[in-house]
Design a protein around this nucleic acid. Structure first.
Length: 1113
RNA sequence: AGUCUCGUAGCUCAGUUGGUUAGAGCACUACACUGAUAAUGUAGGGGUCCCCAGUUCAAAUCUGGGCGAGACUACCA
């Protein structure tokens, strides 16, 4: 049995092979089976909609989910991962309509609701195969065979149960909200429909700046002090027909307002008005400011004005005004007041906003918050209602009246003229703006209050905020900021949707609306229908085949809870009246937010062990779900279970293209996940996504980055393994020898094991904290920098040739341990390759099992030696400095040099360097290190201030101190060091300094080639003696012979005979180092041959060309 | 409009409680190495740390205000 060696390295193929292995071995199922009965780690998978193809952005959130779940499995948790499908909603309906070439109008006409919903049901699962394929290919382990499906009758039954709980707690109520409504279609529109192309059109409307007369009372008195006329607010509207329904005015609290004495331009009456300071110039000309107020002529173009006062909007709060058009009074609330609202701007208008709560969503909200009622003087046909006098019966838009044309006077114009005559209009003009139209009839829409069912989320607002604080959000800001703010400004959840394909609202109401029943289960519905049959309202019970408490599939497939079937059911009220179902469907977000319960068919099933799967320990989705899934999960859990729905959450950012643009079909810059995964393999894609940026930052997806990860990380790891396998197989290392005790292992081994255990500790911490990026980066850094670039490079010689002794065994055991540990640490992120690596390492021990079934390593802190790590840092630093010196003077590393000088100011540093002396010397090919202490008296030192200690002490004098310190002479520095203190003179002041306050570094050794970095300085002796030169030549020869061996295709273990042609420059070296050359090249014999005929010509140095012949024995 | 995130080298990203030479990888250039070799090392060039103001002896870092990019919400899943 040997360690497998590979000729090619193709991660895509590895992924495919490992995937097959998982399938045949049922690895996922086993990983669940193994941990059955252990502690649960509860994970919820958000349901994607399967009526669209998956994109590359789905790979990132699924990677996050998978990584955490695999990690927790390795930690011994039992992690159920039930997949789910979101199957209801408008996109499904639109998809079907597009496919069938129909519109909503056709429903009930050319296609029955029954057939329409049938189409939805089949179309929604259209791409499930693609989703399954992606899931497999990317290595996302989820139970796709038993998913929860939101259209399932069992699923809906749980939803009904939840709704009934809300209903009984009084959290479900019927109210109204302002929605886009088309009077010509008689239907509300979704904002999606408003965003259809061509819906927003430029229209020319009559606009009015109206004057609202301020009532003089205790609140407003202060504004009247310097006023000799009536005082008005002026407010602008593009929809004058809403003015009769005005009930409030809004100002911005931080906006500056001015009070201006002037005249009404139409009536010539003297007046005083209030508007925003930033906007008054839209109504007055600059040049008119000088005009006298007494010389104004009615109708004159020049309007005199005088600014009397300036104040903030906040001061205007509560000021009362007279109703502008008193047709009717609001029934509730304290109307005709000024309120402050943040949405007020000074972009256009007057900075005072006319509020008609019935006809604007913002208006409605702000009015409600301030306890101001509404006037709805227009009906659903778009006509003024009874009791509106001269306006009664008129359409608010001529478009709604088939008998009117554009040429006829509009209500807006009528109102404008009327106000003008009453002296209540300050300015009237035509204005072109963008306004939404119905995509069916092309007529303008209205914003209109419509009946809706609401969940009273505001009742639980405080509790939701409290519970939110217990959730561990990644990143924190999404939880505190985006989500926290959202909760602060919570409004009631509008649950109603007037559509066809979705979960029906289970509420039946009598015609007078006085009696109501909310149905909470199929069994309850069956019973109620029975009553209705007795009462004679229904002939047959559609649930007749349903058997209560029978949870079988057949039983639950014997009926359908969707429309139109539920619509046909008429129930009987307690007083014996017929009840019809409210025709609304519910928001599909309720479907997904209810998944913790509905996926279990709770409480009809799984009631006993519910606490084992609620709440979730972990969820992850895109940050776009903050107000979607994250909120609905949280709201339902808080309101019904007084609990969070999830304890830890990662919300990931978007996936953008390489240039930072959003991926879209339109731009064609989307990345095909299947192609990418197939080309590179899932591992590099996942590794790249996780380590390139924090998941919550947007990811600029660049395939070049995947390639880099493949080369840099996986390539290096693979090379390290290959290197290991090559020599382990030659030496017959079987990981079966007795472990070399840690203390007996060489310095380098103990060093890498120290780092390895530190790594295990770190990675564990990062995974535990859901810091997956940091975990991945730490692993990567260890592999490329420490393991490959230092440990393996320095240890190479230990593996080849020589006897199979303790040192060699230690080297193998150490590298083996590192690779094995890495394969486990990295397996959550790169599940395929790490599994291959782990198995390749373990098979030799007779273990043939997936890495995903093993347990996560625990760090052995006894192996961690910070002092050793510091030593090795020094070795790396010093080596790199010497190499850079060599480069400067162009002396190859192959040319040995005699000595390195290192000035030592701190005994501790010398001890450290001595510990790693051998490593440095062999790495840089130098014979010895000489330590120069102060006593040598030849060191040149430099001194730098330590700002961290000096700053707090001397503050303002820092600049002068830095200057003075820089000027200290060598003698002064020496004195400072000797006494450990120094009195620094700065501008006649004496400042006592200690060694703490400065950093003294040996910077130069006169006459030597010197490099320094931080506190370290090294000097290199670059004299090349004849002995050194000969040794250098010998090494050159070894190098050439090795090259020839390789070029000739000899095996690593082949013995050879070597002949070298004579040359005066090299003969001495060959003779002297014959034994060395032979030992390095597995040479049996090294011969000098004059006039060598065979062999290859080799340049040894300038002008020296030798012939070398290498023959296999 | 509001809320949130991001802005550091040509590109992708680090940057600890503020401390004086702002780092890494990729790319580029040069040199080296060569029994890990479709690898590797060393060095070099490359920065207005988005802008402005403030706090401070000292700001990439803290505060305020802008600018730019993006997302979400305004009943769209």
């Amino acid at each position: 049995m040997k360690f497998p060696e590979y000729k090619k390295f193709n991660l895509s193929n590895v992924a495919k092979e490992v995937l097959e292995q998982w399938k045949t071995e049922n690895t996922f199922e086993k990983s669940l089976e193994n941990n059955k009965g252990a502690k649960e780690f509860v994970f919820y998978d958000g349901p994607p909609s399967a009526n669209g193809m998956p994109g590359i952005h789905h790979v990132i959130s699924r990677s996050l989910k998978d990584i955490v779940c695999r990690y927790k499995t390795l930690q011994g948790f039992h992690v159920e991962r039930k997949a789910g499908w979101d199957t209801h909603g408008l996109p499904v309906e639109l998809g079907v309509e597009k496919a069938l070439g129909i519109t909503k109008d056709d429903i009930g006409e050319s296609i029955s609701i029954e057939d329409y919903n049938k189409e939805c049901r089949t179309s929604v699962m259209k791409y499930t195969d693609s989703w399954k394929e992606l899931t497999e290919q990317m290595g996302y382990w989820a139970d796709m065979d038993n998913p929860y499906i939101t259209y399932d009758n069992k699923y809906i039954e749980t939803l009904w149960w939840l709704l009934k709980q809300l209903f009984e707690k009084g959290y479900l109520y019927k109210g109204f909200s302002i929605q886009p409504y088309s009077p010509t279609d008689g239907t509300g529109l979704s904002s999606h429909e408003l965003n259809l192309p061509g819906c927003y059109k430029d229209v020319k409307d009559t606009t009015i700046v109206a004057q609202f007369k301020i009532v003089k009372d205790a609140i407003s008195e202060k504004f009247f002090s310097d006023v000799d006329t009536d005082l008005h607010f002026i407010a602008w509207t593009t929809t004058p027909w809403t003015l009769p329904s005005n009930t409030a005015l809004a100002v911005g609290p931080k906006i500056d307002y001015v009070k201006i004495r002037t005249f009404n331009p139409y009536t010539g009456e003297p007046t005083t008005i209030i508007c925003a300071k930033a906007l008054y110039q839209n109504y007055f000309r600059k040049e008119d400011a000088e005009l006298s107020l007494t010389e104004y002529e009615k109708g004159g173009k020049a309007l005199p004005y005088k600014i009397l006062d300036t104040f903030k909007g906040a001061e205007l709060e509560g000021v009362r005004y007279e109703q502008l058009m008193p047709y009717q009074q609001p029934l509730v609330g304290d109307a005709f007041r000024v309120l402050v609202a943040d949405f007020v701007t000074t972009e256009d208008g007057t900075g005072v906003v006319h509020i008609a709560p019935s006809f604007g969503a913002d208006d409605y909200r702000v009015a409600q918050q301030n306890g101001i009622g509404a006037l709805t003087l227009v009906n659903k046909q778009g006509k003024f209602i009874e009791g509106t006098g001269d306006l009664e019966g008129r359409y608010v838009k001529n478009d709604y009246d088939s008998e009117l044309t554009d040429k006829d006077e509009t209500v807006d114009v009528y109102i404008a003229v009327k106000l003008k005559n009453e002296g209540k209009a300050f300015k009237i003009e035509k204005y072109v703006h963008s306004y939404p139209h119905s995509w069916r009839t092309d007529k303008p829409i209205l914003y209109y209050p419509l009946d809706s069912w609401f969940i009273k989320t505001t009742a639980s607002k405080e509790r939701m905020m409290e519970l939110n604080e217990t959730i561990n959000w990644k990143p924190k800001s999404t939880g505190e900021g985006r989500f926290g703010k959202w909760l602060e400004n919570l409004v009631d959840w509008n649950l109603s949707r007037s559509r066809y394909w979705g979960t029906p609202l289970p509420i039946w109401v009598t015609e007078d609306g006085k009696e109501m029943k909310c149905i909470g289960s199929v069994a309850e519905l069956k019973t109620e229908i029975q009553k209705a049959i007795v009462a004679g309202f229904v002939q047959e019970n559609p649930l007749k085949d349903f058997v209560e408490n029978d949870m079988s599939k057949e039983n639950y497939n014997s009926f359908d809870l969707h429309r139109p079937y539920v619509d046909n059911i008429i129930l009987v009220s307690d007083s014996g009246k017929p009840m019809k179902r409210e025709s609304d469907l519910i928001d599909v977000w309720f479907d997904s937010g209810a998944m913790p319960y509905a996926q279990q068919h709770y409480p009809f099933e799984n009631k006993e062990n519910f606490d084992k799967c609620f709440p979730a320990d972990f969820i992850a989705e895109g940050v776009d779900q903050t107000r979607g899934w994250f909120f609905t999960l949280h709201a339902i859990a808080t309101m019904l279970f007084d609990s969070v729905a999830f304890k830890n959450i990662i919300s990931n950012g978007l996936v953008l293209d390489a240039k930072g643009n959003k991926m879209s079909k339109r731009l064609g810059n989307g990345v095909d996940p299947f192609e990418t995964l197939d080309k590179y393999g899932a591992d590099p894609v996942r590794w790249y996504m996780i380590t390139n940026a924090q998941p919550w930052d947007n990811l600029k997806f660049d395939v070049a980055g995947i390639d880099e990860v493949r080369r840099k990380f996986f390539g290096t790891l693979y090379n390290t393994y290959s290197f290991f396998a090559l020599y382990a197989n030659i030496d017959g290392f079987k990981a079966a020898d007795e472990q070399v005790p840690f203390e007996e292992r060489p310095e380098l081994d103990r060093w890498i094991l120290s780092l390895l255990n530190t790594l295990v500790e770190e990675v564990t911490e990062h995974y535990d904290n859901y810091e997956l990026t940091r975990a991945g980066r730490a692993i990567q850094h260890f592999v490329t920098e420490n393991l490959s670039n230092w440990y393996v490079r320095l240890c190479r010689k230990r593996y080849w040739g020589g006897e199979y002794n303790t040192d060699k065994i230690s080297a193998y055991q150490t590298l083996y341990e590192c690779l094995k540990t890495l394969s486990i640490l990295g397996s959550p992120i790169a599940p395929f390759y790490m599994d291959r690596l782990y198995r390749d390492l373990m098979k030799i021990q007779g273990v043939d099992e997936s890495v995903h079934l093993t347990t996560f390593p625990k760090p052995n802190m006894e192996f961690v030696d910070k002092e050793l790590e510091a030593r090795m840092d020094l070795a790396q630093q010093i080596s790199s400095m010497i190499l850079s010196l060599r480069r400067k003077v162009q002396i190859k590393v192959r040319q040995p040099l005699q000595k390195v000088l290192i000035p030592i100011l701190d005994q501790k540093v010398q001890e450290r360097i001595e510990g790693v002396e051998d490593i440095i010397l062999s790495e840089v090919n130098v014979k010895e290190i000489e330590y120069l202490t102060d006593a040598s008296n030849i060191l040149v030192k430099s001194i730098k201030p330590n700002f961290k200690t000096l700053g707090p002490k001397y503050g303002k004098m820092m600049k002068q101190i830095a200057g003075a310190i820089a000027k200290l002479t060598q003698e002064e520095i020496a004195a400072f060091e000797k006494n450990s203190k120094f009195d620094l003179e700065v501008e006649t002041e004496n400042l006592p300094l200690t060694l703490e306050d400065v950093e003294i570094v040996s910077e130069d050794i006169p006459g030597w080639l010197v490099a320094n970095e931080g506190a370290l300085t090294v000097a290199l002796d670059i004299t090349i003696t004849d002995d050194l030169r000969n040794e250098g030549i010998a090494r050159e020869l070894v190098n050439r012979i090795q090259n020839i061996r390789k070029e000739s295709g000899f095996d690593v273990t082949d013995k050879v005979n070597i002949s070298i042609s004579t040359h005066e420059v090299t003969d001495k070296a060959v003779n002297e180092y014959k034994h060395f050359i032979a030992s390095q090249t597995l040479g049996n014999e090294v011969m000098l041959v004059a006039n060598l005929q065979e062999g290859r010509e080799q340049d040894i140095e300038d002008g020296v060309v030798l012939k070398i012949d290498v023959k296999k024995l």
